[in-house]
Computed example of a mutant assay.
Amino acid sequence: MSERLFTLLLAIFGGVYLWLGIKIEAPIAYDPLGPRIFPVVLGSFLVILCLSISIFYPMTQFQIGSRVKRLALTILFYLVTFKFLGFMLATTISVYMVARLVSSSWMEGLLTGLIVSIFFYGIFHFLLGVPLPLGTVFRIGG
């Protein structure tokens, strides 16, 4: 994959993020800047930086390693299974897979996944009051 293709994909992602950020409408004007300022600034910076990199810097070919591919697949797995498996199970499996990528044993990976998922569930559920999905796979039988 060439660097130009990668910067083009990032610029397209930034443009879509910018476009979606511009479409945000707040029902109540509680802030002078509003909720749209962060995605608009972030998308603009991403597009501007990608275009400046592709114009002003020479590009070379680079190869994506197998670890990076497996990490991308792990992130994709987490995104796809988050609502289906629920926060606890999807986070445990994903952290286990990342731990195995950095050469930890299966027991260290499993314990790390369990501890991380329980810790962040406690923070989000009890301290912040944010409801996390429990998983539709557990509601199938009853």
Rank of each mutant, 00 (worst) to 15 (best):
C50T: 09
C50L: 07
L51A: 08
L51T: 12
S52N: 13
S52P: 03
I53F: 10
I53A: 09
S54T: 11
S54N: 10
S54W: 10
S54L: 06
I55G: 05
I55K: 14
I55A: 09
F56L: 13
F56H: 15
F56Y: 14
Y57D: 05
Y57C: 06
M59S: 15
M59I: 04
T60Q: 07
Q61P: 07
Q61R: 06
Q61E: 12
F62C: 12
F62W: 15
Q63L: 11
I64Y: 05
G65V: 04
G65K: 02
G65T: 09
G65Y: 02
G65C: 06
S66T: 15
R67V: 06
R67W: 02
V68W: 12
V68F: 15
K69T: 11
K69Y: 14
K69L: 14
L71N: 05
A72V: 14
A72Y: 02
L73M: 14
L73W: 09
L73N: 05
L73T: 05
L73H: 01
L73R: 03
T74I: 01
T74K: 00
T74N: 10
T74H: 00
I75T: 13
I75R: 00
I75M: 07
L76P: 02
L76R: 01
Y78I: 01
Y78D: 00
Y78Q: 08
L79Y: 13
L79P: 03
L79W: 11
V80Y: 10
T81K: 08
T81E: 06
T81M: 08
F82S: 08
F82D: 04
F82G: 01
F82E: 01
K83Q: 13
F84C: 04
F84R: 04
L85Y: 05
G86R: 11
G86L: 12
G86W: 05
F87N: 01
F87V: 00
M88G: 09
M88R: 03
M88S: 10
L89W: 06
L89I: 10
L89H: 05
L89C: 06
L89G: 09
A90K: 01
T92Y: 02
T92D: 00
I93A: 09
V95A: 07
V95N: 01
Y96F: 15
Y96T: 02
M97C: 05
M97T: 00
V98I: 15
A99D: 02
A99K: 05
R100C: 04
R100V: 03
R100K: 09
L101E: 11
L101N: 08
V102R: 00
V102C: 05
V102F: 07
S103Q: 15
S103A: 15
S104T: 07
